[in-house]
Design a protein around this nucleic acid. Structure first.
Lengths: 350, 350
DNA sequence: TCCCAATTCTGTAACGTTACAGATATGCCA
DNA sequence: TGGCATATCTGTAACGTTACAGAATTGGGA
């Protein structure tokens, strides 16, 4: 004879169909809703047998907790928000980041929500939105700046996040970055090894942290080799393809032009090579180019181009991992990683 | 003298802070929670002045409805799920689709959730997940097949969705597609206009609907011109870059090779051109290539390549629009659109 | 045998929202 | 004046979950 449980009253029995809830499972098993809830999350005060029975039934009926219920009650959204500049992306690396994130959160309860903004408007807006509305448990941001206002805001509010790229703020925070300093050094060394001596850098755009990193690696390697830097003025990879090409053509046609270029992006290298060719130079003869690679086609199409791949899928995985750990309250100092051509390197705080 | 409302009891007053809720607004204004709720959604039974007062206060205090509350009560998630094959994407067009979707849903209450899967596993799995858990109000899928099981499933369950690409099922459903038939026809006509007469098609992969469309346009244009098709066997753009290159090199080195190619993808064109060059041919001399363009770099880098751009950002906007309308119960027949090089063309059911 | 603590279960309340079924006030007509 | 429809507001309950406090059962020690 089954017990009479008022809590899971006849409604549950009368309920025709619909996906299983704690209440329907509780009714089926003659248990209280609370018991079922606890059994499913391995709470301590549940008998071993009951726990196993509940878990078995839940699995059999395909129980999945209602996200809205959990979210309303606990405030936990099980959402990670990827904040994206929708003006970015010549080369589609964003999709790789997204794939990386979904790789990492695949077996977790997290969903990925894409929150767009335009960098020509207010970059703070999407961050404030997520924090104020509590629409996610954690945030991933990119285009990180040395004194990033978003990072400061998130730190102040104690909101979990991870950045793609570093800041120069005092407080440690989770991030993943590509070692652009090492990249620039490698690039210079490769060019020097091919006998190049008049080197120019097509750098990342002003404002972003990794510009300084790449510049530093470039300068250091140059001075190690005892070489001067060939300046390109204010040219950066944020310039249009046409502008880069035209400027490089002019540079290449000057009296003593560079014979080696380091480009911070594949699209930049594209434009750069076109500029060289427009000036009558041949890649690999008058000049060599080393570039960061974003689109895979590039490497394949221009074998003379030296390409160093930034693995954005890996970046996505690392970023997702860092946010999830940050949400769980892990020490930020342990959530920092740096990728270089030979793999990822966990960073310990200095 | 303010009225005493038991409903919004002293708790609301005692509540220290936190974001505004219906209850807190109701308390502040001396109104019932229901009244506030109704006033904010322009329900009919609310006095004009009250409505305006409530809306003003809500705006002032920055009220935003709690999504979990709405979702739990109404079942409406305000989420659109983009189902993505994470093995796709040589060229990163996925980010453009995402940007297009976010463009369209920017001023709406919808959020975009990315739901990944691998096409080597079960393509039904993510669709079933969303429908069974009710984790979104609508779905966007791509890689559409003529008798797509996912589409059939969604139709059977009455679940709102839109497909990128068409099916050949009887029931009309929302979709957006690029007119690949028109593209192939244009491509053939352009090649014929340049005096080419031995034309080959590097088609989309078997299984996807748009392969047949492109094939049809290609064949029709050829027979209009009274020309035969130069067959490429089972080669498709799903083959690896290396394989396409090698196969095309062999073809180009044959006795009477094609002098005109139509490629279904930019990456395919990349490989194709490399194959031609490996066989000693020069693009624009021995052969011409017309291709669909996905990455913008391509057009710019190889001016001899004829490129027809598929605007994926537009596709994203159209797809988002179609799902939103479908969620609102619109007639599917009115939610079908076709893009061609000269813009989008709404389709009326035939 | 009795009592108390530990173990294992229970119901109630609440998160913020909306559907529903009233309740109150107002105005109009007979 | 009374009655009744209309306009405008109200409280209660429920969506599915978890925190909390409490109830029932068991076992062991005195």
């Amino acid at each position: 004879m089954g017990r009479r449980l008022r809590q899971v009253a006849e409604e549950a029995a009368a309920a025709p169909e619909g996906r299983p809830t704690l209440k329907s499972i509780a009714f089926m098993m003659g248990l209280g809703v609370t018991t079922v809830s606890r059994a499913l999350k391995d709470a301590p005060e549940i008998g071993e047998e009951t726990r196993r029975r509940v878990q078995m039934v839940a699995r059999q009926v395909g129980y999945r907790p209602n996200r809205a219920g959990v979210r309303l009650r606990t405030g936990k959204t099980n959402v990670i928000s990827l904040i994206l500049d929708t003006e970015d992306d010549m080369t589609g690396f964003v999709s790789d980041i997204i794939y990386g994130i979904t790789d990492r959160i695949a077996e977790s309860p997290y969903h990925l929500v894409v929150t767009p903004y335009s960098r020509r408007r207010d970059p703070m807006e999407p961050v404030r939105y997520v924090v104020e509305t509590g629409s996610a448990d954690g945030i991933i941001i990119s285009r990180t700046e040395p004194a990033d206002k978003r990072v400061r805001y998130l730190l102040e509010h104690g909101f979990p996040f991870a950045t793609h790229g570093r800041t120069e703020l005092d407080a440690a925070h989770p991030f993943h970055d590509f070692d652009n300093q090492a990249f620039a050094r490698m690039a210079v060394e490769a060019l020097v090894a091919r006998g190049r001596s008049r080197l120019a850098l097509l750098p990342p755009p002003p404002g972003l942290t990794y510009r300084a990193h790449m510049r530093a690696g470039f300068s250091a390697a140059l001075s190690d080799a005892g070489l001067p830097e060939y300046p390109l003025g204010d040219l950066s990879i944020d310039a249009s393809i046409d502008e880069i090409r035209d400027r490089i053509r002019a540079v290449a046609a000057s009296r003593s032009p560079p014979d080696g270029y380091v480009s911070a992006s594949g699209a930049g290298a594209f434009a750069l090579v076109a500029g060289l060719e427009a000036a009558g130079q041949v890649l690999g003869r008058e000049a060599d180019v080393v570039s960061k690679q974003s689109t895979k086609l590039l490497r394949w199409f221009r074998p003379e181009l030296r390409l160093v791949e930034e693995d954005f899928r890996l970046a996505g995985r690392e970023l997702a991992n860092a946010v999830m750990k940050a949400i769980d309250g892990a020490d930020p100092a342990g959530l920092q990683s740096l990728a270089n051509p030979s793999g990822v390197m966990p960073l310990t705080p200095c």
